[in-house]
């Protein structure tokens, strides 16, 4: 293989890795939007909290002398998902439910307030410095002739890919097959009508916040392990990127969020690959503007039908 094609493969691997995690976070935005038509701006902070909790659990277990990595990761995953879901549920209860039915801008403001509150709460309770964890999963494969260009694919990247894929498959099955999933879809089609048909829509809305938060916590654990660093401010940028991914793919559509995340990740990697990396954000957000100009509802979004 030529040097350029090996290089492109390497950047594709990098882009898909970061894109998978954008997708995981983006689903939380898209599910909430799909059902209540609101952007949950505190969602990025849930990702940050998930990352912190998994760090605390991993560091605690390592400190207590546990050495079996799979056990540590599974415990961290469970604790992070449970606590982050509780935060997701609480945000819905505190910042959204009391405001349901009011002007659409009001819950938006309260979500931004919630986001600032959570960020500062973590900064005050955990200090605002970077907290680091030594690499837990090291090693990987390399291929390609080292004298030309050596492509590396680490075990950590494989873990991110497979975990994302597994979660996506489970979520798709949950939405399409289960009773709760059907209720979710019904809510997203017509919230008022679903309520009239005897489905407790408040519960379904709470459920979407919980599911979104659980996925963000998984992303928090994976990215925490991948980068090895958390600070209270990571939620903002991650949230912004994931929100962009959700809009790119068509906000409200779950496959759209997955696709949008991957496209955004790959675009960023390819831009850094062939242009100076400072243009990374210019190109990816420029792409967003272009897609919204020609397909305002996103790549997989359904065109908005005016209800009479």
């Amino acid at each position: 293989m030529t040097e350029t094609s090996l290089y492109v493969i390497q950047q594709l691997i990098n882009g898909l890795t970061i894109g998978s995690t954008y997708a995981l976070i983006a689903i939380g935005y898209t599910m909430v939007y799909g059902i209540i038509g609101m952007i949950n701006f505190a969602h990025g902070e849930i990702y940050m909290i998930g990352s912190y909790i998994s760090f605390i659990v991993i560091a605690g277990l390592l400190g207590m002398g546990f050495i079996s990595l799979p056990v540590i990761l599974i415990v961290a995953l469970i604790v992070a998902v449970v606590i982050a879901s509780t935060y997701g549920w609480t945000i819905e209860r505190v910042a959204y439910r009391p405001l349901r039915g009011s002007n659409r801008l009001i819950p938006l403001i309260s979500a931004i307030g919630m986001s600032i509150f959570l960020q500062n709460y973590v900064a005050l309770s955990q200090s605002s410095r970077d907290v680091a964890l030594p690499p837990q999963i090291t090693g990987g494969w390399t291929f390609g002739d080292p004298s030309v260009f050596e492509v590396s694919f680490s075990y950590m990247q494989l873990l991110i890919w497979s975990a994302t894929l597994l979660v996506m498959v489970l979520l798709t099955l949950f939405i399409s097959r289960s009773r709760m999933g059907r209720a979710c879809r019904a809510c997203s089609e017509d919230l008022g009508m679903t309520n009239l048909l005897g489905i407790d829509t408040n519960r379904i809305i709470a459920l979407t916040f919980i599911v979104g938060a659980a996925l963000a916590a998984i992303a928090g654990l994976l990215l925490g392990l991948y980068y090895g660093v958390v600070n209270p401010y990571i939620g903002f940028i991650a949230g912004l990127k994931a929100f962009t991914a959700a809009v790119l793919g068509g906000i409200g559509s779950i496959p759209g969020a997955m696709l949008g995340g991957l496209i955004l990740g790959v675009t960023e990697a390819m831009t850094s690959a062939f242009f100076p990396s400072e243009y990374k954000d210019v190109v990816s957000f420029g792409l967003l503007v272009l897609i919204l100009l020609f397909r305002p509802s996103g790549i997989l979004g359904k065109p908005e039908v005016e209800k009479v």
Binding site: Q11, G15, Y227, K280
Partner: peptide, 15 residues
């Protein structure tokens, strides 16, 4: 080249 302060992923730059 410049990177963005606050970024976490530098894999593309390193490649």
């Amino acid at each position: 080249e410049g990177v963005t302060a606050g970024d976490k992923d530098f894999s593309a730059l390193i490649a």
